[in-house]
Nucleic acid binder design. Structure first.
Length: 467
RNA sequence: GGUCCCUUCGUCUAUCGGUUAGGACGCCAGGUUUUCAACCUGGAAAGACGAGUUCGAUUCUCGUAGGGACUGCCA
């Protein structure tokens, strides 16, 4: 179990989009496998026909792709493996580790209601557990495992430590419904086994299930995977993450314009740590990630920290790569795509843009000067700084710029001297200049903009505004 | 109700019996500054509570409180 190549898996059920918690679970599995030269596989748990849709499956795949989590091989459909699951159940029946239960759902429900009313255990004990085959009626039946009744079971979990359950808390859970279809609990075990999964890293809402699933491993005599049940993610208020907090789905974070690298870093750091390291690359995360670094307590989602991390990643991301990400962001949000000129401009402005934006919308807003075209129409805030006095100064500046060599130093010199000649400061002139060049009160440095725009465009914009 | 799990600054966390309990985000003050972002300096800010073990507990044990998960012929 230790020297086998690592195989981890992510097994979402397509009953909804990719939840941010699921995204982190996938990330942990991916990090663990990739850091060890192992495989990371996908299994779609679509056995609930009523709630599973192809759209959801696609949304989950898209979400993982956006996050940059690549998987090995084709995603496995759990539903397509039903025959195999049934075979295993038959095997257990033959081995005597499972039995046929002829109790009807009404009977069981009645029992539970009674139990609840009397405040006794709602664990159903089927009367059919030890009934001989010869005495079985000719009726539909469900197949149940024979759970151990005495003693206790201790499971080692890499995150939770040793967890012990008294066996009388285990029920003879159903593995095959009375219509002959396999149940999730059986399918998971069979699939994990058949797919060679060595490490099961999943949300700790599955911890109790681990004990149930353990019964099937025991019944079949299969090797058990290493378990790691990770704590859940809550909203900023400590309550379950919900719409109220802004976003539960990975796609929503994509739509808000967070860069995938920042998401990976933030999510990895949520519930897992490697000393004081906060900001790291994928390569570092893969190298450092391990089960022992995962904490046991649930963590809250903090948008401020996410933004900070995203800002740091933007700053170090390659210009062209960022441009591609932004184009993908625009496409994903159904925004109008950039034309060639805008793409070129954005790329040229990227060095000064990427250091000041945490999200793509923010970056795009600051890139307005290069995405728009003449005549520049200043927005309300920008217009305020453009009074007649400053227009006059800018008019004076224009011819001087025409004679300037287009370097940062020279531009700074020209603007400063014009400012000085008018008994004002560069700081006072920057606002109006920004308004003229960008039409916005917020933008990169005026000199950076001039450099990106070039002399002709810069002068033209000045003439437009002061002419 | 039952079973299991969790509890260090507001948040994410470090600490693996001995620390002035460290870092990061955020916040506050000051600086820099051309708006935004960034940056620099400083600051406030934590071991849920109560016992026990120990020379010594944030760290180990138990209890209490609070929170969470599970308790389906759902996944």
């Amino acid at each position: 179990m230790s020297d086998k190549p690592v195989v981890t898996r992510f097994a979402p059920s397509p009953t909804g989009a990719l939840h941010i918690g699921g995204a982190r679970t996938a990330l942990f599995n991916w990090l663990y496998a990739r850091g060890r030269g192992g495989k990371f596989v996908l299994r779609i748990e679509d056995t609930d026909k009523a709630r599973s849709t192809d759209e959801n499956t696609q949304a989950i795949l898209d979400g993982l792709t956006w996050l940059g989590l690549d998987w090995d091989g084709e995603p496995v459909s759990q539903a397509s493996r039903a025959d195999r699951h049934v075979d295993v159940a038959q095997q257990m029946l033959a081995d005597g580790t499972a039995f046929k239960c002829f109790a009807t759902q009404e009977e069981i429900e009645a029992f539970r209601e009674d139990a609840r009313a009397n405040k006794t255990s709602t664990l159903y004990r089927s009367p059919w557990r030890d009934v001989a085959e010869a005495d079985h009626p000719d009726l539909p039946f469900a197949v149940r495992v024979k759970a151990p009744r005495d003693g206790s079971t201790t499971l080692h979990d890499e995150v939770q430590g040793d967890v012990t359950w008294s066996n009388d808390q285990l029920d003879d859970m159903i593995i095959l419904r009375s219509d002959g279809t396999p149940v999730y609990m059986l399918a998971v075990v069979v699939d994990d086994h058949d797919m060679g999964v060595t490490h099961v890293i999943r949300g700790d809402d599955h911890l109790a299930n681990a004990f149930r699933q353990n019964m099937i491993y025991d019944a079949m005599g299969w090797d058990k995977p290493v378990l790691a049940h990770i704590p859940l993610i809550f909203g900023p208020d400590g309550k379950k993450l919900s719409k109220r907090h802004g976003a539960t789905g990975a796609a929503e974070y994509q739509a808000m314009g967070y860069p995938a690298a920042g998401m990976r870093n933030y999510l990895a750091r949520l519930g897992w740590s490697h000393g004081d390291d906060e900001f790291f690359s994928d390569a570092q995360a893969q190298e450092w990630f391990g089960l022992s670094g995962i904490g046991k307590s649930p963590s809250r989602f903090d948008f401020k920290k996410l933004e900070n991390i995203c800002g740091q990643h933007n700053a170090v991301t390659d210009d062209a790569a960022l441009l591609h990400e932004i184009q993908a962001f625009l496409a994903a949000t159904d925004a109008t795509p950039l034309n060639q000129q805008q793409s070129d401009g954005l790329l040229a402005a990227m060095p000064s843009l990427k250091e000041r934006a945490k999200t793509f919308p923010e970056l795009l807003e600051k890139a307005h000067f290069v995405l728009t075209s003449r005549p520049i129409v200043p927005d309300e805030k920008a217009a305020k700084s453009l009074d007649d006095v400053h227009k006059g100064i800018l008019r004076e500046l224009t011819p001087q710029l025409q004679n300037a060599t287009w370097t940062r130093d020279d531009l700074e010199g020209v603007v400063s001297s014009v400012a000085a000649a008018n008994e004002t400061k560069l700081g006072k002139l920057a606002g109006p200049l920004r308004a003229v060049l960008a039409g916005r009160a917020v933008s990169p440095s005026v000199f950076d903009m001039m450099l990106v725009l070039g002399k002709d465009e810069t002068v033209a914009r000045l003439q437009d505004a002061t002419g």
